[in-house]
């Protein structure tokens, strides 16, 4: 018998990135990573910058996302993110530079709270990109 599946959709303002039936989704919730299998309770959360992965059989796919929400309802998982990139779309050099820049800002003694928050978001975004880029091209 085939594994039960959930409908997984991931949309950004620019396009529908994923629309597939999958067996499992893992996403970076605001209070930590969570996994969704068929039969999950209705769930709505904000997401942090991080890695979204989904599995069909033995193949797993990864995406770096930031700025978003996830909704689980019935056997549907919907993620709305401002940015989502597959490993092959990520510019590692750029992400590395972004991480260094953010580190410098975080160490700097600017007590400006907005700058600090902004640097922190940039840092976690760069980190997520590097993590996903390290997964190698999908498929």
């Amino acid at each position: 018998m085939a594994e039960p599946r959930v409908r997984f959709e991931l949309a950004t303002p620019n396009r529908l990135v994923v629309s597939e039936d999958v067996e499992e989704v893992v996403a970076p919730g605001l209070q930590g990573y969570f996994g969704v299998l068929p039969g999950h309770v209705p769930f709505l959360t904000s997401l942090q910058s991080g890695e979204v992965s989904y599995r069909i059989g033995r193949t797993e796919q990864y995406l770096a996302v930031s700025g978003g929400f996830a909704e689980v309802q019935g056997d549907r998982v919907t993620i709305l993110a401002e940015r989502a990139e597959r490993p092959e779309e990520i510019d590692r050099e750029r992400a590395l530079r972004a991480r260094q820049r953010a580190e410098r800002r975080l160490q700097g003694k600017t007590q400006e709270e907005i700058d600090y928050t902004r640097a922190l978001t940039a840092f976690s975004r760069a980190l997520a990109r590097l993590q996903v880029a390290g997964r190698g091209p999908s498929r």
């Binding site: 209070q31 309770v41 209705p42 769930f43 709505l44 904000s46 309802q73």
Partner: peptide, 16 residues
């Protein structure tokens, strides 16, 4: 739908 919210419905609304 009555969701489980994380962190809370208000916080999600504010971000949305």
């Amino acid at each position: 739908v009555d969701y489980l919210y994380e962190p809370s419905a208000d916080a999600i609304l504010a971000a949305l």
